[in-house]
Design a protein around this nucleic acid. Structure first.
Length: 445
RNA sequence: GCGUCAUUGGUGAAGUGGUUAACACGCUAGUUUGUGGCACUAGUAUGCAAGAGUUCGAUUCUCUUAUGACGCCCCA
């Protein structure tokens, strides 16, 4: 048997419906914030990620899917969304358009990692990137937008942690101060931290092993080393967050992994039982230097991303009521070939009229067909009967009340319209269904 | 890259160094019911992740590989 590659997952059945639901919530929130959908390639030149993410990091050296294509080009499956979007911004000269450019993406990413809880090799992420504005209001908006998506999805216990790394000057000053501070005590720390002091001393702050170490607790924070400009900027971000009524905690331990981050960084946690120690569901930050690193014009940017699988898990654990349509309007049953043909014809007619209709395909016994209608949760059934059809009539049965009505074929649509109207109210959809009439035109494009 | 544990049918699973691998659900067919949802009957793994080894004999022991769950590193 051929199995899916390691660390991949098939999403189907109920889970797929949950994912689809997340899609629709994202789309509707993004529309209101006026962010535009962007699709960039799933693979890019290897160089993009090497330069964007950093040549020396573990990430690039051993956690990407790299390969040569038939033209001997170095290709990498995108491990994250930001680099591709920024590349597209530069390549398509979006900096010439109305700035800031507010974009969102939603797609699969690939990371060559050992799978574990909440971590797959193929993962689906939604994210936003805002390019072309350094205004602190954008920082606050991106954070609030993230929080609002979680809220719209129905999640409770959302916690926002924010921090600032300051500008490049502040960052470097802090970096040096940390090294100086930890150096005399480093032998008291775990082996990992001993390595970290050279490579990325900021990470020591986040160490789980040494988290109770007094030296670590009293370590200087990024906030101590901000220059006035960076400090002022951070105050503005907080001010706007207050204004937007986003609750947050300033957490100096949030440093994020990558070099390109500066100023605002944030992580959003969901306080959910059964989520394990790592309850971060989304994170992001400002990257004012990235565009330049990728040969673009000096352009400030900020972004945020969240993973689908953890979101879906969170919704499941929280028992969030998700409006999933699980039933169908009508199931058509038949016995002989003439009736079968009429079932095929009628189901098409009714589908085009907007009803969710299914029918029998394997010509099983009526009993089995009724069972099938049950499984599909059909609201109504019609047993097509040659005699009745000759009289232009059908008998339609409500599967719940068992009430039967024999009506003329011409009245069928009118009948369904009236009967199903009440059921419609049970679902407060906002036009979620791609098959619904108000979307049909867009679909065709 | 490192570690721990796991892998039996469509599903949940029981089980043993030896002849027909339990039980339940599901599914299919049939009986009965005015055309299903109940009940009853029958069918439903030539095989216990793959390969190799130990053995008279392995699903059961050993090893290798693969996959999965969860950790470490890392976390875009």
């Amino acid at each position: 048997m051929i199995t899916k590659p390691k660390g991949c997952k098939d999403i189907y059945g109920r889970e797929a419906k949950v994912w689809k639901y997340i899609d629709t919530v994202i789309d509707s929130v993004m529309e209101k914030y006026n962010y535009n959908y962007i699709r960039t390639p799933i693979f890019e030149s290897t160089e993009l990620f090497h330069r964007g993410v950093g040549e020396t990091t573990d990430i690039v050296t051993k956690e990407t899917y790299d390969f040569k294509d038939r033209g001997d080009r170095s290709i990498t499956l995108r491990p994250e969304g930001t680099a591709g979007v920024v590349r597209s911004y530069i390549e398509n000269k979006m900096y010439g358009e109305n700035n800031p450019v507010k974009l969102y993406y939603n797609g699969t990413m690939y990371r060559y990692e050992r799978p574990q809880a909440g971590r797959e090799r193929e993962l689906t992420q939604f994210g936003v990137e805002v390019l072309g504005s350094d205004d602190p209001l954008i920082d606050a908006e991106v954070i609030s937008l993230a929080v609002n998506i979680y809220k719209m999805l129905g999640l409770k216990g959302i916690k926002v942690n924010i921090n600032t790394l300051g500008d490049v000057e502040s960052r470097n000053k802090y970096h040096d101060a940390l090294v100086k501070y930890f150096a005399p005590y480093i032998n008291d720390f775990c082996d990992d931290c001993k390595n970290r002091i050279d490579k990325s001393p900021l990470k020591i702050l986040d160490c789980k092993v040494d988290k109770d170490n007094e030296v670590l607790k009293n370590a200087p924070t990024t906030l101590d080393y901000l220059n006035d400009e960076s400090k002022e900027r951070f105050e503005k971000v907080k001010e706007y967050l207050d204004l937007l009524q986003v609750e947050y905690v300033v957490n100096p331990k949030i440093v994020r992994g990558l070099d390109y981050y500066n100023h605002t960084v944030f992580e959003i946690e969901a306080d959910i039982e059964g989520f394990g120690s790592n309850n971060v569901i989304g994170a992001g930050g400002r990257y004012n230097g990235l565009c330049e690193m990728l040969d673009g014009p000096q352009t400030p940017g900020i972004g945020f991303a969240t993973g689908f699988s953890r979101l879906a898990l969170a919704l499941e654990l929280e028992n969030v009521n998700i409006p999933i349509k699980e039933d169908i309007d009508l199931f058509l049953l038949y016995v002989n070939e003439d009736e079968k043909k009429y079932a095929a014809y009628l189901s098409q007619e009714l589908r085009m009229a907007g009803y969710v209709v299914d029918t029998e395909y394997t010509s099983r016994s009526l009993k089995a067909q009724f069972k099938q209608a049950d499984r599909l949760k059909a609201k109504y059934t019609i047993v097509l009967n040659s005699k009745e059809l000759d009289n232009n009539e059908v008998t339609i049965k409500n599967t719940k009340t068992k009430e039967e009505d024999t009506i003329s074929l011409d009245a069928l649509i009118y009948y369904l319209d009236e009967k199903l109207a009440d059921d419609m109210d049970e679902y407060n959809y906002e036009c979620d269904d791609s098959g619904c009439s108000c979307h049909s035109n867009e679909e065709d494009l």
